[in-house]
Amino acid sequence: MKVALMSFAHTHASSYARLLAARTDVEVLTSDPDAGERPAGESGGAALAAELGVAYVDSYDELLAWGPDAVVVCSENVRHRAHVEAAAAAGAAVLCEKPLATSVADAEAMEAACAAAGVPLMVAFPVRFSPVFVDLREQHAAGALGRIHALSGTNNGQVPAARAWFTDPALAGGGAVTDHTVHLADLADALLGGVPAVRVHATANRLLHPSLEVETAGIVTVTYADGTNLTIDCSWSRPASHSVWGGLTMSVVSDAGLVDVDPFAPRVSGWSETDATELWLGYGPNLDDLMLSAFLDAVRDGTRPQPGGRVGVRTTAIVEAAYRSLRECRAVDVETAGSMAVTAG
C-alpha cells in the first residue's frame, strides 16, 4: 500500500512518519513544501524527511501524482480542508490530524468532498484506541455502567513550543480550546454513541502566557442531547520546565459509580541527577501506532475507519460553539451540525 504524508507542520507528523517507515506493508512518500514559511530553527522539508528515514518530494502535486492509496494530513489546522480535498480528489483514503477543521463549514465540506470522491475520511484521535478506553467503551456498551450521568476530563499540556503556528490564530484557528477540547469531545462522542452536543459554555484566559495571541487556559462545559454533561479542562497549564508534555484523563459518573481512566498512567517514575528533572518512562502502548494500524487495516479491507468525518464535524461544532460562548460571554446552543448524514460515524 502506498501512503503519503502531507506536511510536517504538526508535531505528530514525525511520529507517524517513523511508524510508517518501520512498517513492511506500506511504501511511504512525504512532502512538506510549506516548511520555508516556518520560523528559523523549526525543522521540516527534505532535511526532516531524511532524519525520519522517509522518501520525500518537493510538491504536493508530485506527492499525489504518485497515486497514494492513503494520505495522512498533518498540516496547520486552517490548511486541513484544502489538503483533505486534494487528497480525496486524488482518490486516496484520508487520515486528517485533529482538529478536523477550524469551522463546521470547513468540516462539512471536507466530509462532502470525501463522500463525493468515494474515499473514507478518518480523524486522528489516537486516545480512543488506548486499551483502557476501549475497555471502558466496551463495558459501557455491554451495560456495565448503567446510565452515564456526567463526564469530566483533563487534557493539559505545555504550551506548544516546537511549532509556532500552534499559537498563531491565523494558522491554528485558536489556542488551547482548539487544540485540547477535541480529544475529550471525541471520547465522549464514542461513549455516548454519537449523541449530539446541544449547549456549550466556555471560559478562558491568557494569564499563563500573556504575550501570546491565543487563549492558553480554558474550561469548556458541554451538554449533550441525552442530558449528559461533559466538563473539559483544556488548559496548556503544564509548566514548560516539566519533564513531560502533559496528559489526558477522563472521569465517568454512572449508575455503577465513579470510573477514572488515565491512558498515560503506565509509567516508571524517578529522578535524573544528570538532568535535574523528574524521570517519567511511559510504558503504555503507542497510541499513534494503534490508530495508524486501524486506519491502514480499514483502507486495506475497504471498511470505514473510525472515528470518521461525522465525529470530526461534531467535535468541530463543539469548539466552534465554545468560541461563540467566549465572544458572547454566555452559554450557547450548538449549531445543528450536519444536514448531510453521509456517514454513520
Binding site: G146, R147, H149, A150, S152, H201, T203, A204, N205, R206, L207, A217, G218, I219, T221, T223, G227, T228, N229, T231, D233, V253, S254, D255, A331
Partner: peptide, 29 residues
C-alpha cells in the same frame, strides 16, 4: 458562574459542575 447538573430522574445519583470566571480572569472548575 456557569453550572450544569445531571442525574437521571429516579437514579439517585447527582453530578454537578460549576465553572467560575474570577474578576482577575482566572478560571476555576
Amino acid at each position: 458562574v456557569r453550572a450544569v447538573r445531571s442525574g437521571a430522574e429516579g437514579s439517585g445519583t447527582v453530578a454537578a459542575n460549576v465553572v467560575l470566571t474570577h474578576r482577575s480572569g482566572s478560571i476555576s472548575s
